[in-house]
Write a protein that binds this DNA or RNA. Structure first.
Length: 227
DNA sequence: GAGGCGCAGCAAGCTAATGT
DNA sequence: ACATTAGCTTGCTGCGCCTC
């Protein structure tokens, strides 16, 4: 087991870097790496980098890796039937967010593009597993999610949902509640600095010096010391 | 340069219904 | 369990303007 984990970690690191580059360069996430051009053909202009190999951490420096690490909470190392559930969950959440883009296109073309996109996405998610499912199972999940979401989601339904559950009154109520809570949290977070500011002031430091020392704005130091 | 004050606007953080 | 949604409150910044 130890050996598996030891190999798994760099592989996931590699997968995260690959995803990050794919997204950053807006490349085709479904590209399998098999289709290529013949560099010897005279029509292609071939660009070569200065070196053949890069360390993973060298590549990682060029992209925002944090965004592409497998999400916390997703049990990417699950095995057996758990993988189906995980894949299903991840895929459908992605599908809810993205289906309308394809439905806009509509028709058979839209559906085909959507189905293909779902499968591509499912394959990507499947790649996060230490022991991936086989392609047929991934395809089955992709097809099922694609079909289900395609049939049930629409711009109208989404708007209807928003209208029904996000009236200004409802939002105001939620916002008020959330804001108060948020305020408490933020206040607690700056409590230490606030206490320091008062102490510094009592010792005769200028507001400006305090602001600089604590790396906060002048205005807020005033406010703290007045409270 | 210092203290003092006010205001516009931003970002963070949160809410709860609803979806699966 | 988690994503999505719009709007709200709060804390804070940045700025201008004032007086001493």
């Amino acid at each position: 087991m130890e050996g598996l984990n030891a190999r798994d970690t760099p592989m996931r690191y590699l997968a995260a870097i690959e995803s990050a580059f794919t997204a950053t360069l807006e490349a085709d996430p479904g590209f399998g790496g098999l289709l290529t051009k013949n560099p010897a053909y005279p029509l292609w202009h071939v660009l070569r980098g200065p070196r053949i190999g890069y360390e993973l951490n060298e590549l990682a420096e060029w992209v925002d890796l944090e965004r592409f690490k497998p999400k916390r909470g997703w049990k990417v190392d699950e095995v057996g039937v758990g993988r189906n559930v995980t894949l299903f969950d991840r895929l459908r959440y992605w599908a809810y967010r993205n289906v309308l883009e394809y439905k806009k296109e509509g028709g058979l073309d839209g559906w085909n593009a959507w189905l293909s996109a779902c499968n591509t996405r499912a394959l990507t998610f499947n790649g996060d597993f230490a022991a991936p499912l086989d392609g047929r199972e991934v395809w089955w999940v992709a097809k099922s999610v694609a079909k289900w979401v395609w049939q049930r989601f629409s711009l109208e339904k989404r708007q209807e949902l928003i209208q029904r559950t996000h009236t200004p009154e409802q939002q105001a109520r939620r916002g008020r509640k959330g804001g108060k809570k948020s305020g408490e949290v933020r206040r607690a977070m700056s409590e230490e600095k606030r206490a320091s500011a008062r102490l510094m002031r009592a010792q005769g430091m200028s507001y400006r010096a305090i602001a600089k020392e604590l790396e906060v704005s002048l205005g807020i130091v005033h406010k703290w010391c007045r409270e």
